[in-house]
Amino acid sequence: MKILVPVKRVVDYNVKVRVKADNSGVDLANVKMALNPFCEIAVEEAVRLKEQGIASEVLVVSVGPAAAQEQLRTALALGADRAVLVETAEELGSLAVAKLLKAVVDREQPQLIVTGKQAIDSDNNQTGQMLAALCGFAQGTFASKLEIAAGKATVTREIDGGLQTVALTLPAIVTTDLRLNEPRYASLPNIMKAKKKPLDVLTPEALGVSTASSVKTLKVEAPATRSAGIKVGSVAELVEKLKNEAKVI
């Protein structure tokens, strides 16, 4: 069984994001970039399935600039077998990314697609669902547990009321939640081996996919600065401030 894992290059989660002076977007100059944490969980799950003998190959795919090869090499160091980069300098929306991934799925014919539920930069939580719709595959989102047996994927997913278990007929798409697993660290030998693993570079034109978007970003702003909290000396003072200053009662 071949598993395809889409991954994304994002600003490292330890970095404080800054908005450009002209409010046109996020300032990425000299900013540390990393593999999206949810994508890292997806890679780990795919590698574990391979280690269990369930999967025969793990393919990682990214859509983005040439620099995204760095994150693909990280995924290869974590245990993936080969990588594909769909290289584009454009800032693409979820639907355009899903269309490009659909073209790669058509070429590679994986039996299972495991992807992070969302990227920590855009937080859209859309690409996995859109890809499932374009491919006509069953989908299990927000997975906290995944089991593969007898041509089916059993997914335990987190919902508002607790947990829900669904059975998906392969091929299928699973999006990962935080509690699915704990990603491993790449060892130095595996980092060195990853440099020799195959990494193919494609373009949207080569895949025959139009990435034109009907959505335009007008303005990007940082969140409003929160005022400091205060301590009150009594319940009466708290009620007075809630009533007259905050005006919530």
Rank of each mutant, 00 (worst) to 15 (best):
E51H: 05
F38M: 09
Q52G: 05
A66I: 00
E57G: 08
A66L: 09
V63W: 13
V60S: 15
E51P: 00
E70T: 10
E51Y: 11
L59Q: 14
V60K: 14
G53T: 00
G53R: 03
Q69T: 09
E40L: 06
E44W: 03
V61I: 13
S56G: 15
E44R: 03
I41S: 02
L59P: 13
E51I: 04
G53Q: 10
Q69A: 06
A55D: 12
I54F: 01
Q69G: 09
E57F: 08
Q52D: 14
A66N: 11
A66K: 10
E57M: 07
K50D: 04
E57V: 04
A46R: 11
P65Q: 09
A68Q: 09
L59V: 15
A66E: 11
A68K: 00
V63P: 13
E57N: 12
I54D: 00
A67R: 15
A66P: 03
E57D: 15
S56H: 02
Q52V: 00
V61N: 15
A67C: 03
V61Y: 13
E45T: 01
I41W: 05
G53D: 14
V43A: 05
S62V: 12
V47F: 14
V63T: 07
I41A: 12
A67E: 14
V63R: 05
A55Q: 04
E45K: 10
A55S: 07
A55F: 04
C39S: 12
I54H: 01
A46Y: 06
A46F: 07
E45P: 00
A67M: 10
V58M: 06
Q52P: 02
P65H: 06
E57R: 11
F38D: 09
E45H: 07
S56R: 13
G53V: 02
V61M: 15
Q69Y: 01
C39N: 04
V61W: 09
Q69H: 01
A46C: 10
V58F: 00
A66C: 08
V43L: 04
V47C: 13
E44Q: 08
A68V: 00
S62R: 06
E40D: 12
V63C: 13
Q52A: 15
G53A: 06
S56I: 02
Q52H: 11
L49P: 01
Q71F: 00
Q69I: 02
E44V: 01
S62K: 10
E45W: 03
E57S: 13
V58C: 01
V60W: 12
F38E: 05
I41T: 14
A55P: 08
E51V: 01
I41F: 02
Q71N: 01
S56Q: 15
C39M: 05
I54Q: 09
E70N: 05
G53I: 04
E51C: 04
I41P: 00
P65W: 11
E40R: 07
G53L: 05
P65L: 08
E44K: 10
K50L: 07
S56N: 14
G64S: 10
V61H: 12
K50E: 00
G64P: 04
V43D: 06
E57Y: 09
